[in-house]
Amino acid sequence: MKVEISELLPLFRNAFNNQDLSITEKSDRHSIAEWDSMGHLNLIVELEDNLNVSFTKDEIESIRSIKELMEILESK
């Protein structure tokens, strides 16, 4: 499944409860302050619900950047 950054943005904003957040393909867990472990949990919940996908335990643990997320989504 190919997902554009513009589709991901509202999901990131909801998950991190920050409507001013902006993301690029280069963003990762270091560059986004809210992307801590609770943020990651909320992000997975949002992604699974809105994109109608489910991630394996390994996938959840390996997503550390937008790029990695998009690659995993593309493999679905």
């Binding site: 472990s37 949990l41 919940v45 949002e46 619900d49 489910s54 335990k57 643990e61």
Partner: peptide, 18 residues
């Protein structure tokens, strides 16, 4: 239930459930 999230974060619910 989302058992993977439960396993990793002890938070076992889907968005729908929450």
């Amino acid at each position: 239930f989302n058992y993977n999230l439960g396993h990793l974060y002890q938070m076992p619910y889907t968005k729908k459930m929450l």
